[in-house]
Simulated scan of single mutants.
Amino acid sequence: MDSVHPLGDPTRLLFLGEECLADGFRLIGFETYPNPALRDVDQLLRELQRSQTKAFVVVDDAVMAQDIPQLQRVLREGGRIVVIAIPALNAPPKLASEVANRLAALFGAATLQASSTGER
């Protein structure tokens, strides 16, 4: 017996951040919002939540560091909208998550910095 499993609504792929990063994300199929105003980020995330849309949202560190109410709400609640942050092109990689913060508190920030560069 064949059963049909509907795929449902597709997950939207979005990038919000620096224009130089937006070009690369656009090439791989993301909706891009280069250099977005903070209120535009807030409004877009509010609309995603209101419409119950599944989304994978990539923001640059500059956007993540801003006090954007809807972004903070999405990060707290989780669910259909997944948000990750990426560093600027010329910035060294850094671990910035709740897990990284807890590890830094336990083992010291220098431990995480050394391991992220491959040094011991």
Rank of each mutant, 00 (worst) to 15 (best):
I28Y: 07
A22T: 07
D60S: 10
P36S: 11
D60V: 03
Q49N: 13
V41S: 03
K94L: 05
Q52I: 00
A104P: 14
L45V: 09
G108K: 10
D67K: 07
L71Q: 08
Q43E: 13
R73F: 04
A109K: 13
P10L: 01
P92W: 01
V82R: 10
A37I: 01
V59T: 08
A91K: 08
V99I: 13
R39Q: 13
V83C: 05
P34R: 04
F30G: 05
G17C: 01
I28A: 09
R80W: 02
L27M: 09
Q72M: 07
H5E: 12
Y33M: 12
F56T: 04
A88R: 15
D40L: 11
Q113S: 14
A22H: 06
T111V: 05
V59N: 06
G24N: 13
M64A: 14
Q72F: 00
R39H: 09
F56Q: 08
E18H: 07
R50S: 11
R120S: 12
I86D: 03
I86L: 07
Q72K: 15
R76C: 05
N101F: 01
Q52G: 10
T11I: 09
I28G: 03
G78L: 04
V82K: 12
L95G: 14
E77C: 06
S116P: 05
Q70V: 04
Q72E: 14
G29P: 10
E19T: 11
D9M: 04
T111Q: 08
G29F: 05
V57T: 12
A105K: 15
L21S: 03
R73H: 10
P6L: 00
A114E: 15
V82P: 01
E77D: 15
T11Q: 06
L27E: 12
R73W: 02
D60K: 07
P92C: 00
L27S: 13
F15H: 06
P69A: 15
D42G: 06
D61A: 03
N101K: 13
A88C: 09
L89H: 07
R76K: 13
A100G: 15
A85M: 05
R12P: 00
N35W: 00
D9T: 11
F30I: 03
V57G: 06
Q66R: 14
P6D: 07
L13T: 09
N101C: 01
D61K: 01
N101I: 00
A22I: 05
M1P: 14
V41W: 02
K54G: 06
F107I: 04
L14F: 08
I68W: 00
V74A: 08
V58E: 01
N90T: 14
L7Q: 12
L27K: 14
L103C: 10
A88K: 14
P36V: 05
L13C: 10
E47H: 08
A91C: 04
S3T: 15
V83W: 05
G24S: 12
G17E: 02
V57H: 11
E31C: 02
Q70G: 01
V82I: 13
L13I: 04
S51M: 01
T11P: 04
E77M: 06
L71I: 08
D2M: 02
V57F: 07
L48K: 06
